[in-house]
């Protein structure tokens, strides 16, 4: 039982990251019918921005200019990095995607791949190949309950992720901007005629997705404190799988599928030899998609009310 619970906790943490990143894929697809393949690298960029913001605050604290407690630094780091990364996301949309909005879909998808490579190699050129260690903002404490180990960082990561997802849901469901997004997802030919700017909505969608990816990056840095320029590639692919599995354009679907992916990966590694983890995990997902080709919450295109 303890063994099982321990793995549930491991899977919750691991799934949070997939869920947060899958949301970004899903929103962009829902609104613009576009796979933003640079999203995994936006996640990486967000983690690095978080690294610099946190290091900056810690430096200020250490030199006595602006002494803040670590929990406050953490909150400020998350907020500031989310803001800065959303600017990066909007810039990517403005520079790389907007000129290609009416180009064939394949060109836009390729653009995403190229933006990803530019972000990776740009990072490599600026910072060098050396790994960066994400600073320890909160001292990790391990609690033991009947053989189950849980750390304060794990609890925080899962709670912050769920909180962000709820906030996103509120934004999309309850605000005017969210309504405009949903309308755009429904029909991006008619809605601009009603006076909603597609450029504004596209930028906002990219901004929101990037902000979530940035939060994921910082939480990732806290859990796995070694950052490298290529950390977003495979992770981005897997989160993309989660976005598809959840149903393209579905926020709830992306979040649930992200957690499901985490559970499948962890439990496959637990039950089978760990060498076979991805082989079995992604075979399972292939089988699920065979029976539900539109994912859990996706519907065939003609009837699709995206988002």
């Amino acid at each position: 039982m303890a063994f099982f619970l321990q793995n549930v906790i491991n899977a919750l943490q691991w799934g949070s990251f997939y869920a947060l990143i899958a949301l970004g894929y899903s929103m962009v697809y829902g609104v613009l019918m576009l796979f933003n393949f640079a999203h995994g690298d936006i996640f990486m960029t967000g983690a690095y921005i978080g690294f610099f913001v946190a290091t900056g605050f810690l430096g200020l604290s250490a030199s006595g200019i602006l002494v803040l407690p670590n929990w406050l630094i953490l909150i400020l780091t998350i907020l500031i990095s989310m803001f800065l990364t959303s600017l990066v996301g909007m810039a990517v949309e403005r520079i790389a995607y907007r000129p290609l909005r009416n180009a064939p879909r394949a060109s836009a998808a390729i653009t995403g791949l190229m933006v990803g490579i530019i972000l990776e190699t740009g990072n490599l050129a600026i910072l060098g190949a050396r790994r960066q260690k994400f600073p320890d903002l909160i001292a990790s404490q391990t609690y033991q309950f009947n053989g189950v180990s849980i750390t304060n960082t794990k609890i925080m990561i899962v709670l912050v992720s769920i909180g962000l997802m709820l906030a996103l849901n509120f934004f999309v469901r309850r605000t005017k901007w969210g309504m405009a997004m949903r309308a755009m997802a429904y029909d991006f030919l008619i809605v601009p005629l009603m006076g909603v700017s597609i450029n504004f909505i596209a930028a906002m969608t990219f901004g929101l997705g990037s902000a979530l990816a940035s939060a994921a990056g910082i939480l990732f840095g806290i859990a796995y404190p070694v950052l490298d320029p290529y950390m977003g590639i495979i992770f981005g692919w897997k989160a993309f799988v989660a976005a598809i599995l959840g149903g393209r354009g579905s926020i709830l679907g992306a979040a649930l599928a992200g957690f499901l992916l985490g559970f499948i990966e962890i439990f496959v590694a637990t039950i089978f030899p760990s060498t076979l983890r991805d082989l079995i995990a992604y075979s399972i997902i292939l089988i699920i998609l065979t029976f539900r080709p539109h994912g859990f919450f996706g519907e065939p295109y003609s009837a699709q009310l995206r988002l």
């Binding site: 793995n7 491991n10 859990a223 290529y230 962890i266 060498t275």
Partner: peptide, 20 residues
């Protein structure tokens, strides 16, 4: 006798197995 592949960052499943 547990394994993973290059670029993996989460080893919690393997380590839980090892501990168990």
């Amino acid at each position: 006798y547990e394994s993973f592949t290059t670029k993996d960052t989460d080893f919690s499943a393997q380590l839980t197995k090892i501990k168990d």
